[in-house]
Amino acid sequence: MTGDMPTPAGSMGAPVIAAEGLNLTFQTADGPVHALSDVSLAIAGGEFVSFIGPSGCGKTTFLRCIAALEQPTGGTLSVNGMTPDAARRARAYGYVFQAAGLYPWRTIGRNVALPLEIMGFPKDEQDSRVARVLEMVELTGFEKKFPWQLSGGMQQRASIARALAFDADILLMDEPFGALDEIVRDRLNEELLSLWARTGKTVCFVTHSIPEAVYLSTKIVVMSPRPGRITDVIDSPLPKERPLDIRDTPEFLALAHRVREGLRAGHAYE
């Protein structure tokens, strides 16, 4: 049960993630809440897609729908051509939460091995995979450390390694750097880009930060609340090679401006 990864659908031209008229309504004590309203989106293999919008715009909910952590109440959603449930069982994605959520009683190495243990990888393969993904996130030598011995940024890198450990080709990231300070965040953004370039994974990235979204993405999805919906989808004209100082170029600033306008337009609805 080791080598058979889900086939990357992107190579066939078919979208890896396809949502069509997706709706999700939560029934609460204060009446129904429209978390997602008529969301349609296609994400091709190898894309880096950011979801940006104010709280309540449904960006996290959409991510959770892809991960089959929420059930849409209407519309269709496919992941790798399967239902989200089937995709999860096929280990289609790794999920990174805002909090690193490492188990304090496990060392970094054992934390990264957690999904491998659960999925039943043999012991020696667990070890080699842990070593490989820890190297990818530059945490080699920290296998034996406990989470409390690491900084917040290093803990989040370990949690990314954990999501990479079983070779899913989709990475779902829910504000992974939201709790980190600006400097650490810049560094991790850079590392994430190079990781993405090396692995060719499809990344769905939820964020509050306009510069972060513009810097990272090949596609920026601007969302708006009440009801949660997509107001703009921007294909980034920026090159794939992105040094940090690309953020001072006119192209970058123009893109950031368009995202900001999109967010403002969403708010004008109220």
Binding site: L69, R89, F97, Q98, G101, Y103, I118
Partner: peptide
Amino acid sequence: PAAAQLDLLRTYSA
């Protein structure tokens, strides 16, 4: 355990 930790296990189909 926090909700996110339980969600994480669900993503592994634990």
